[in-house]
């Protein structure tokens, strides 16, 4: 898992898996930067705890979720949360 800052577009790129093993670190990093746009196109795997974390930062840190990878799109659809992430603009 990695979180890279993209200076040009002022957004963060989250890559690799987002599962129970990563959520602690990801939570800390993302809560420290409220209001950012988070690019999810590099997320290879996402479980329930990953989804829960995305819901949290969206709700409490105002993080905008964008460009969900297939793995993310799939679970958002499954849970009736497709509106949570935006298509890339």
């Amino acid at each position: 898992m990695s979180i890279l800052e993209d200076d040009e577009h002022h957004r963060l790129h989250l890559s690799g898996p987002l599962t129970i093993y990563e959520v602690d670190e990801v939570k800390e990093r993302l809560l420290a930067q409220p209001g950012v746009t988070l690019d999810l196109s590099g997320v290879t795997e996402c479980d329930g705890s990953g989804l829960q974390l995305l819901m949290l930062i969206h709700r409490d840190a105002g993080t905008r979720l964008t460009a969900p990878s297939d793995a993310v799109t799939d679970i958002l659809h499954l849970c009736g949360l497709s509106h949570l992430a935006e298509e890339p603009s």
Binding site: V23, K27, G48, S49, Q52, L53, L56, D60
Partner: peptide, 11 residues
């Protein structure tokens, strides 16, 4: 967020 433990399930 402050009180949320990411490894707990609240869903």
């Amino acid at each position: 967020a402050e009180r949320m433990d990411p490894t707990s399930c609240y869903l």
